[in-house]
């Protein structure tokens, strides 16, 4: 009986905490369904409408949403394609200056993004990459690579060497071992790293703001475009925010089993 009461109390506390944590998201969600003339009203009851969502599709938002999907998706895939083998190399093979290489790879994350603004801006102007999806993908790739290499390096270090040696004895080459043995064992790590890369690219505002104009503008920048001088279009900002959140939520739900395992890896010594 006592235990049951204890469970009930815990559940209530957990629910309150959850509600508290989710309150900004829930607030944004209800705001997105409020009519424009009622958007800053204090009453909780209102007549829900989809006008904010439909209004989004008449402007530049849909294109910016597609741009976000392309830049985040492609940069994540490329980061994994390039970063995972690099991480494996750094984890398994010793060569001259290997530690320095790993450190220099991390250099892109050692300063705040604003420090790279002018060099990137000028380089992009020179190379004709301003306001292009390719340019933005390159930037995200640069930043995500460091994350992939350093995160995956520790995952690979946790894979027992004896399994790879067994594969070699069975006739596997380095690539065969990597693809057939190491990668399957590191799937949780790949999922966790992939989703982190995707979220970092998806939520980037600063580089998208500076390096794009109209053609390659992404959704975080498009949302800020609803902050007009005459007034902020709160309804559209909330609707845009909700839509921007959606792919990350779906992606996270799809890989959540691997994600949890990936994030927990190494927490317990077996």
């Amino acid at each position: 009986m006592r235990r049951k009461r204890h469970t009930w109390t815990s559940n209530i506390v957990a629910a309150v905490l959850l509600l508290l944590l989710l309150s900004p998201l829930l607030w944004m969600l209800q705001l997105s369904f409020r009519p424009a003339d009622d958007v800053i009203a204090e009453q909780l009851l209102f007549r829900p409408t989809l006008e904010n969502y439909t209004a989004l599709w008449t402007g530049t938002f849909p294109q910016s949403f597609i741009n976000s999907v392309i830049t985040s998706g492609v940069s994540t895939v490329l980061s994994l394609l390039l970063g995972v083998p690099a991480a494996y190399t750094l984890a398994r093979f010793r060569f001259r200056g290997d530690r320095h290489v790993a450190l220099w790879i991390l250099a892109t994350r050692m300063a705040p993004p604003i420090a790279f603004t002018i060099p990137f801006f000028l380089a992009f102007k020179f190379a004709g990459l301003s306001d292009t999806l390719t340019g933005l993908i390159l930037i995200y790739l640069t930043f995500n690579l460091a994350l992939v290499i350093w995160t995956m390096r520790s995952f690979f270090a946790g894979v027992p060497r004896s399994l790879e040696e067994a594969a070699w004895i069975d006739g596997c080459g380095i690539w065969g071992t990597f693809l057939r043995v190491v990668i399957p064992l590191s799937t949780p790590g790949l999922a966790a790293t992939g989703i982190l890369c995707f979220i970092l690219s998806w939520n980037d505002f600063f580089f998208a703001l500076i390096l794009t104009r109209t053609k390659a503008m992404t959704s975080p920048v498009a949302i800020v475009n609803f902050m007009q001088y005459e007034g902020w279009e709160w309804g559209k900002i909330a609707a845009g925010g909700t839509l921007v959140m959606l792919p990350v939520v779906i992606f996270t739900l799809l890989v959540r089993t691997w994600l949890v395992r990936g994030l927990m890896a190494g927490a317990v010594k077996e």
């Binding site: 603004t117 500076i210 902050m227």
Partner: peptide
């Protein structure tokens, strides 16, 4: 192009300063 006020100023500051 007519971006919003904060976006316009941020971008133009970089464009003009370079």
């Amino acid at each position: 192009e007519t971006p919003s006020f904060p976006i316009y100023n941020q971008r133009m500051d970089v464009e003009l300063s370079t």
